[in-house]
């Protein structure tokens, strides 16, 4: 575990990857290079594990509140859950005007799940990787949202919904028209199509990469701060103060990023439902 600074950082940024090695066998990658050589046929076990685990935490907590939900006097858990649900419900209703029973639960799932995944960033960067290392697991990244696979997967799923509802609400032709007859007059359709196409593609990319970028950068700063702890008492104290300050600031970021992801999803889907007159 100990090594140069570069090795330390590298270690913290490497996923626990299970995949197909170039020689055709399936195994856990023992180094970042080995993981890279696996190409697409690899799965980041730590990202998947933590994300599924946190998703289950969300489902368990909210299901528990839902099962015991009463229209009488709510308990503590129900109160908290209802506050979040009401918040998401109001946000959805203020943005999304069409009727669709999927949108609000989708936004709720995104908000809470992404928030929980981001929350892992506040656990001191060395705790769980060290623990895993002691247990014989070489790599362990515990913040799933610092893995672009995770954020892009969610963004592409939302993108698929955007395409589905665009075509469903406007018809295939209507959707094409919307892409082609804007912003210039119809005789410039090809240019319009390229412009609108870029706008469309930019949606999932911005959605996924924004979340990934924010969390990856935040994680990186935590790692750099963690490096200070090895530099003597002065650096240790300074690092401690910095870590605390950045964590406080990060509480804002992780909540905000989760909210932005959820709200943008609602906005994009609202746009997909809008049938414009041309």
């Amino acid at each position: 575990m100990a090594g140069t600074t570069a090795e330390y950082i590298q270690h913290h940024l490497t996923n626990l990857t299970f995949g197909q090695l170039p020689d055709g066998t399936w195994a856990f990658a023992k180094s970042a290079e080995e993981a890279a050589s696996m190409g697409f046929m690899s799965i980041n076990v730590d990202s998947m594990g933590w994300s599924i685990g946190l998703g289950l935490v969300f489902c368990f907590l909210f299901r528990k509140a839902a099962v015991s939900a009463t229209s009488g006097i709510p308990g503590g858990l129900q109160n908290g859950v209802e506050m979040i649900v009401e918040f998401i419900d109001e946000t959805t209703q203020s943005i999304f005007e069409a009727k669709n029973a999927l949108i609000a639960p989708l936004a709720l799932t995104i908000f809470i799940w992404v928030f929980l995944m981001n929350l892992m960033d506040l656990i001191p960067v060395d705790w769980i990787p060290e623990l895993a290392f002691l247990l014989g697991v070489p790599y362990m990244k515990i913040v799933p949202t610092t893995d672009p696979n995770i954020t892009m997967a969610m963004a592409f799923t939302v993108f698929a919904l955007i395409l589905y509802y665009s075509i469903k609400c406007k018809g295939g032709l209507g959707f094409l028209k919307e892409l082609s007859f804007h912003p210039f007059p119809p005789y410039l359709a090809p240019i319009n199509f390229i412009l609108e196409g870029v706008t469309l593609i930019a949606k999932p990319l911005s959605l996924g990469l924004r979340l990934f970028g924010n969390l990856y950068a935040g994680e990186m700063i935590f790692i750099l701060i963690a490096l200070m702890f090895g530099g003597g008492i002065i650096w240790f104290l300074f690092g401690g103060v910095l870590q605390w300050a950045w964590a406080v600031f990060h509480v804002l970021i992780i909540t905000l990023q989760a909210f932005i992801f959820a709200v943008l999803t609602i906005v994009y889907l609202a746009q997909a439902h809008e049938v414009e007159e041309h």
Partner: peptide
């Protein structure tokens, strides 16, 4: 690297 995680997630 982008991999099966994308599909899994």
């Amino acid at each position: 690297n982008i991999g099966l995680t994308l599909l899994g997630q």
